[in-house]
């Protein structure tokens, strides 16, 4: 970036007498805030606040919500426990323990697959990294609440059947 042509010393603008007297400026400020106050009092319905639980904002289809695990045709998880997602995860929130699958055509499967939703930053890199399209963040669920920390660590069974609402 070039600063050529800009004055090297920026001079402070001198305040006029009425500005430094402060009182007039306070009155001007009061007028501005008062204008907001009156407008909002007269048009309560036009405030930008979304009355959340009753009304909701619309999110786009690419919105990243809570994760889910995709299934094969037989209902078992598509995941082959390659650890790509847990490797790429910047929050280190995915823990997978791989196991030997009885079917040699599948060979490797996740014995456990847990996501710590408290650590997750919802960046979506796990989706990007997955070679099997096994993990997706398209549930659109963003209200995730529980009254204890343990509930936020969700397991494979939960993620495979993940169309419940936010309460864990």
């Amino acid at each position: 970036m070039s600063y050529k042509g800009l004055p090297e010393v920026v001079t402070r603008r001198r305040r006029s007498f009425w500005e430094s007297a402060y009182f007039v400026e306070i009155c001007k400020g009061l007028f501005v805030t008062g204008r907001h106050l009156v407008r909002n009092l007269l048009h309560t319905g036009e405030m930008p606040t979304v009355q959340y639980p009753e009304k909701r904002r619309e999110y786009g289809p690419r919105f990243r919500g809570r994760h889910r695990l995709m299934k094969r045709a037989d209902g078992s998880p598509r995941c082959v426990a390659c650890m790509m997602c847990s490797t790429v995860c910047p929050a280190d929130c995915i823990t997978i323990v791989a196991g030997e699958h009885p079917d040699p055509a599948i060979e490797k499967f996740p014995k456990t697959f847990t996501i710590d939703l408290l650590r997750c930053v919802y960046c979506g890199l796990c989706e990007e990294a997955c070679p099997c399209d096994a993990i997706r963040m398209d549930t659109g669920i963003y209200e995730i609440a529980a009254d204890n920390r343990e509930s936020f660590v969700v397991d494979k069974e939960f993620l495979l059947d993940n169309d419940k609402d936010g309460t864990l």
Partner: peptide, 10 residues
């Protein structure tokens, strides 16, 4: 309530 209305909140 007043501060909220001044700041365009509810």
């Amino acid at each position: 309530k007043g501060s909220a209305f001044i700041q365009d909140r509810t």
